[in-house]
Nucleic acid binder design. Sequence first.
RNA 1: GCACCGUUCGUCUAGCCAGGUCAGGACGCCAGGUUUUCAUCCUGGUAACACGGGUUCAAAUCCCGUACGGUGUACCA
Length: 512
Amino acid sequence: MSNNNIRVRFAPSPTGPLHIGGVRTALYNYLFARKNGGKCILRVEDTDQTRFVPGAEAYIQESFEWCGITFDESVSKGGPFGPYKQSERKDIYKQYADQLFASGHAYLAFDTPEELTAVRQAFEAEKKTFTYNAEERKKLRNSLTLAESEVKELLNNNTPFVVRFKMPEDETIVMNDLIRDRVEVSTKVLDDKILFKSDGMPTYHLANVVDDHLMEISHVIRGEEWLPSLPLHVMLYKAFGWQSPEFAHLPLLLKPDGNGKLSKRDGDRLGFPVFPQQWTDPKTSEVSRGYREDGYFPDAFINMLALLGWNPGDDRELFNMEELTEAFSIERIGKSGSKFDLEKAKWFNHQYLIKRSNESLAELLLPIAVEKGVLVEPEQLAEAVGLVKERATFVTDLWDQLDFFFVRPESFDAKAVKKRWKAASYDQMTELKNLLADLDDFSAEQTESATKAWIEEQEYGMGAVMNAFRLLIVGALKGPHLFDIIALIGQEETLERLDNGLHELGRKEVQK
RNA sequence: GCACCGUUCGUCUAGCCAGGUCAGGACGCCAGGUUUUCAUCCUGGUAACACGGGUUCAAAUCCCGUACGGUGUACCA
C-alpha cells in the first residue's frame, strides 16, 4: 500500500537522553508511516534555550540508528520541508504569531514573570488557583487592557512581552483522538497560553502547530501527556484556518512498581535500563545504563517495546521490524498505561539469542574471550555456542555457560565433589581414562558407545560414573551432553583433564 | 483544587464498539515428566473482569455514580 499523503513526525526535545517511552512513540510513528507507505520525519524541538544539553541530539540520533528506526526527513538527512530544527525556524514562528495577533486571535502581554508569580501567590494565599483566562486577562497588563498608545510606547521602549492565545470565553471544543475517540472540553477551563516567548522563541504549542502544518503532517502520534493541550492545538488550527491533522495520544509507560510515569530514577532504583543506550550526564558525570550496553539485541528491544501498549490481536509475540510493520495498526493500541516488565524483556532477548546463528554469536563472544585472556578458535567457539545457547539470555552469560570448553577446571565444586566423588571413583576414572586413550575415533558417538559399553560390562552405575567423569572434565555438575564436550575439546585435552582431576581429587578414603 | 484520560490474572494483554465463551494467550511462579549433571524442552497447575446501582431473559461488554490511579494546570517540552 502506498499513500504519499501520510506524513508523521517524532519531535524530541534535546534536553537529555531519550527514554524508552520516547523510543516507543518514535517506533509507532515509524511503523505507522511504513505500513501506510508514508513518510516519517524527525524534528528537533529546541525552542527552550535554557534546557539545552550538549550531546543529547547526537544521543538521540545514535539511539535510533542502533534500534533500526530510520527517518525519511531529518536534521542530518535534510528534506523538502526543512530546516528540521526549530531554532533554525525562528523567523517563521514570529510571522505566524504576528498573523494571529493581527487577526485578533492573540494579544500581547507585558506582565513580567515576577508579576505573575506574585499574582499566583496571592491567589494561593486564598486557596485559589490563578489562571490567565478570559476573566483574569481583563485585570492584567496586556494589549487588551492597555490603550493603543500605551502599547505602542511599551513596544518602542523595547519592553519585553509575550504573545498569548485569546481563548474564547465559553465554547465547547470537540476533538477526536484515534485511540480515545471523541473528547470534549469547555474553553471555560482553559487559559490563554503563551505562544511566543519574550526571548523571541515560540513555545511548543505554536511551534508544533505551525511546523506540523508547514511540514504537511497528517497524523500526530504522541504521548498522552499532550492530551490536555490538545484543545489549544485544535483552537490554533482553527484560528489559522488550517485543517488539523489526526491525533493519536499514546498511553504512558509506567513504573514497574507502584504507579506513575516511568522516569530515569526508576532504572537506577530497580536495576533495569530506562534508556536505549548508556548516557553520561555532561554536568554531573552520572552514568545511566542502557539496553545496548546491558546486552540486549536491538531487535529484541524493539520487539519488547512494540508489545508494550500494542498487540497484533492474535497470539504472536515474536516480530522483527518487517513483521511489526505488516501487523501494526493504531486501532490496536491500548488505552491504558503499561508497566515495564524486566523478566519479559529478558525472555525476548533469550528468544532472539536462540534465533541468532552460532557464528554470529561467536563473533560477539570473541572479545569477551580475549578480555578473559583465553585463546579460542572462532570455529570451536561457534560449536560450543551451539551446544549452550538455549540456556543463555545475554551474550555475556553465554561465556559463563561455555568457559569450561576453553579453560581447564582449576578447582572442583566442593558440593559436587562431596556428592559424586566416591570411594570407587578414582579407580573407575583411571579405567575410563585408559579406555578413552585407546580410541582412534574420538567423535561423540564413538566415545559414548564405548563408555556405555564399558559401564555395562563392569556393571558400574551410570549415574556414578558419568557424574564423576563430568566433575573431572567440567569441574562442576553442569553443562551440555558430556560426550559433546569431550568431542569438542579433543582427546588430548580430555585425557589431560582426567589426569589432572585424578591428581587433584585423589583417592577418597572409605568413610567409616 | 480544577480539567482531561484510564481501570481484565503479580506483569504484558485478548475479549468490549455489533451483550450469551468453563473470561483465552504470553512472561513469572509452582508441580510432574524427559535427562549422566545443570539448563533447555514437554505436560499440567496457580491467578483477573476496581466497587455500587441500573437496562436486559442474559453484562467484563451498554448507561449512571463512586473509588482508585495517571496526565495536565510554566515565558518546559
